[in-house]
Design a protein around this nucleic acid. Structure first.
Lengths: 145, 145
DNA sequence: TATTACATTAGAATGCTTACAATTAGTGTA
DNA sequence: TACACTAATTGTAAGCATTCTAATGTAATA
C-alpha cells in the first residue's frame, strides 16, 4: 500500500543525487510503514536482524539526509531522544503524558497565529509547531480502576 | 521591580515545604530577572562568581523543584539543552532559526484546538504547546548585506 | 579498469543530565 | 539558644543520545 510513497521518496532522493543503499532503503521503508514515530534506536533495533552489521551511525546519518531533503521531520519532546515522522503533510500531534503515545490529528493550519507573530515580534516566520498533551483513552480507562 | 514576583515565588515554595537556601534563592532570582530563557549551564555560569562552590547538580535539582511546583517551565527545542522560563502566564514563543533567539508573544489561548483534539483523538487534554519559527529582525537585516 | 566521491562501520568522544554517597546546613521544638 | 531531624548541597561518577573520526567498502563514471 505504501509502495507508492516509497517510490516517490526514492525518486526524491535520486533527484537530489543521493545513492540508494540497502541500509538507506531499509530505514526509509521502515519509517514509511511505521504507524508510530520511532526513535533512532527503535529503527536500529528493528533492522538489526536484517542488517546485523549495520551501525547506529548509519541510522543517524540517513535520518539526517532524509531530514535535510524534507522527507522526514524530527520531533523533539521533553524526553531524551528524538522521534522521526515521515508524514510531512500538515498535521499536529497529541501526546500522552502517561505512556508517551503519539497520535496524529488534523486541524486547519494556524496561519493567523503566524501572521500575528510576525507583526508582534518582527520575525519572518517560516513555520510553526503545535502539540496537545493529555491522557490517551487507554491510559484513561486504566486509571479508572 | 520583580521583588514582588520573587516574594510570591518564595511564599509558594515555603507553603510547599521547600527550604529557602541561598543557592535556591539565587537561581530563582536569576530566572525571574532573566530577560532570556537560560539553560542550566548559563544559570550555573552566571552564579559562579557569587557561589564559587556551587555544583551543577544543585542548579538541576532546583530547577526540577521549581518545575514540579509550577514556578518554571522547561522548554525543549531541537538543540541539545533545555531552557527554562519562569513566566508561567500564557504566552507563546517565536524562535530564530538562525541565532536561536527566543521572543515571547501573546495570543488568545488555542482552546478550540484542544477541544477538537479531544474529540478526534479521545485524549483528555491538559495543555498544549506552540511555537513559531523564523528569522528574527536582527538576522534579517544582517542577511540583507 | 582506474578513479573518485560517497556510504558504512566500529568505536571513541562529546555534551547534557541524573545518580550516588558523604557532608553541610535550614527549620521546628524544647 | 541549642538540639535533632531532615532536606539540600557537593563532587564525582555514570548514563544516555548523538556526533565524530579514520579505515574500509561500494557505486558511478570516464
Amino acid at each position: 500500500m505504501s509502495d507508492h510513497r516509497l517510490q516517490d521518496a526514492i525518486d526524491t532522493l535520486k533527484s537530489s543525487g543521493v545513492r540508494i543503499t540497502p541500509q538507506r532503503h531499509a530505514v526509509l521503508e521502515f519509517l514509511l510503514n511505521a504507524m508510530t514515530h520511532p526513535t533512532a534506536d527503535e529503527i536500529y533495533k528493528a533492522l538489526e536482524s536484517k542488517f546485523p552489521n549495520m551501525s547506529v551511525a548509519t541510522v543517524y546519518n540517513n535520518l539526517r539526509v532524509f531530514k535535510d531533503i524534507g522527507l522526514v521531520r524530527e520531533l523533539t519532546y521533553g524526553d531524551s531522544s528524538s522521534r522521526f515522522d515521515c508524514n510531512t503533510s500538515d498535521h499536529y500531534h497529541a501526546i500522552c503524558n502517561n505512556c508517551g503515545k503519539i497520535v496524529d490529528f488534523h486541524y486547519p493550519s494556524l496561519n493567523e497565529v503566524e501572521s500575528l507573530a510576525e507583526q508582534v515580534t518582527g520575525f519572518d516566520v517560516s513555520h510553526h509547531r503545535m502539540e496537545v498533551y493529555g491522557t490517551c483513552s487507554k491510559c484513561q480507562s486504566e486509571m479508572a480502576h
